[in-house]
């Protein structure tokens, strides 16, 4: 059976929710080992990874330098594991999060192999589908024989695996010469809210330029809290400074697949639609009845959001 090395994305405390989806892809390809690179006091994500169905082993790679997600520090270690750990791996996967996108090409270059970005479907052991042109075209690519397959996995394309697993956690060594030319200074700004995580929430309410201001965005937060949803935004709303960048949904923001997505005051630029087309149900509320978002929305409601949203909350209260 093929051997798959999956690089965990985590913050030292929790495992990124995209890993459960990446495992769903990885287990179609072979026996899955999840590698968690962490600082001595940051091994909690190992236990979370061990619970994921389809994971056969968790490799805990402990090092003082691994407390920060620096590609230049992690890539040589990943390349070492990929090439040499118990004879090496046939696949090296990472989620298409900003972490995975940052680190995996660096690994690919060290190994001298191409990378498949945003793998969305497995056709066979070496053939995959991936989106190009902001998702307007799907292309099929084949990795030549005789080299390991490196890929970032488009997490919205896969359903998360369950958490009934009990994989063993084993310490692994990935000795490599680590550079000192890159230093992590920390997060400058983060959502840091108590609301559900945008990338994994089953419900998302998002606002666009139509919301009009930072203050007005409260109306979006209010509806989201009413239905227990995460909050997202279009690029226009982020560019206008209504909300921080980590809330951006779309091609250059987060690509998500909630069961319910409510887009408010969002016109539906192609780049935004790329980020939500895997959603179960899309609702659009916009005063422009010709906005492109309505073409893709399961249910569209034309009208002024400042009138409709309070009505919607009332209707939800009445419906219980």
């Amino acid at each position: 059976m093929s051997r798959v090395l999956l690089i965990a994305d985590h913050d030292g405390k929790t495992l990124n929710t995209g890993i459960a989806r990446t495992v769903a892809c990885a287990r179609q390809l072979g026996n899955v080992h999840v590698a968690v690179f962490h600082a001595p006091d940051g091994d909690a994500p190992c236990a979370a990874a061990a619970k994921l169905d389809g994971v056969s082993r968790v490799l805990s790679v402990r090092h003082e330098a691994n407390g920060a997600p620096l590609a230049a520090v992690l890539a040589p270690q990943i390349a070492r594991l990929a090439a040499e750990h118990e004879g090496g791996y046939d696949y090296v996967l990472a989620p298409s999060t900003t972490f995975g996108k940052d680190v995996l090409p660096r690994v690919a270059a060290l190994l001298g192999v191409p990378q498949v970005s945003d793998l969305m479907e497995v056709i066979d052991a070496r053939t995959f589908k991936r989106p190009i042109y902001a998702g307007n075209v799907i292309t099929t690519v084949k990795v030549p024989e005789g080299i390991p397959v490196l890929a970032t996995v488009r997490i919205a394309s896969f359903q998360a695996v369950g958490e009934a697993g009990e994989a063993p956690i084993v310490a692994a060594q990935a000795e490599a010469e680590l550079p000192t030319h890159s230093r992590y200074l920390g997060l400058a700004e983060s959502g840091g809210s108590d609301r559900p995580d945008l990338q994994s929430a089953p419900r998302v309410v998002a606002g666009g330029r139509g919301v009009g201001s930072k203050e007005n965005f409260e109306i979006i937060f209010k509806l989201a809290d009413r239905i227990g949803a995460a909050v997202g935004a279009s690029r226009a709303a982020v560019d206008a400074g209504y909300v921080p960048n980590d809330m951006q949904v779309g091609q250059t923001g987060k690509i998500i697949a909630p069961d319910l997505y409510i887009a408010i005051g969002i016109s539906g630029a192609i780049q935004h639609m790329t980020g939500i087309k895997d959603a179960g149900c899309i609702v659009a509320i916009n005063k422009d009845g010709d906005a492109p978002i309505f073409e893709a929305a399961d249910f569209g409601l034309v009208g002024d959001l400042f009138t409709l949203l309070p009505e919607l909350e009332k209707a939800l209260d009445a419906a219980g």
Binding site: P114, V141, F299, G300, A315
Partner: peptide, 30 residues
């Protein structure tokens, strides 16, 4: 080594386009 690039195809289209007339109809539909 290079990736062999094969078929290109348009993405599957979402079946959307239904509009509802009121908030009540929206809540019912959901």
């Amino acid at each position: 080594p290079q990736l062999e690039v094969g078929a290109h195809e348009p993405p599957p289209k979402r079946q959307g386009g239904t509009k509802v007339e009121s908030v009540a109809a929206l809540v019912q539909a959901l």
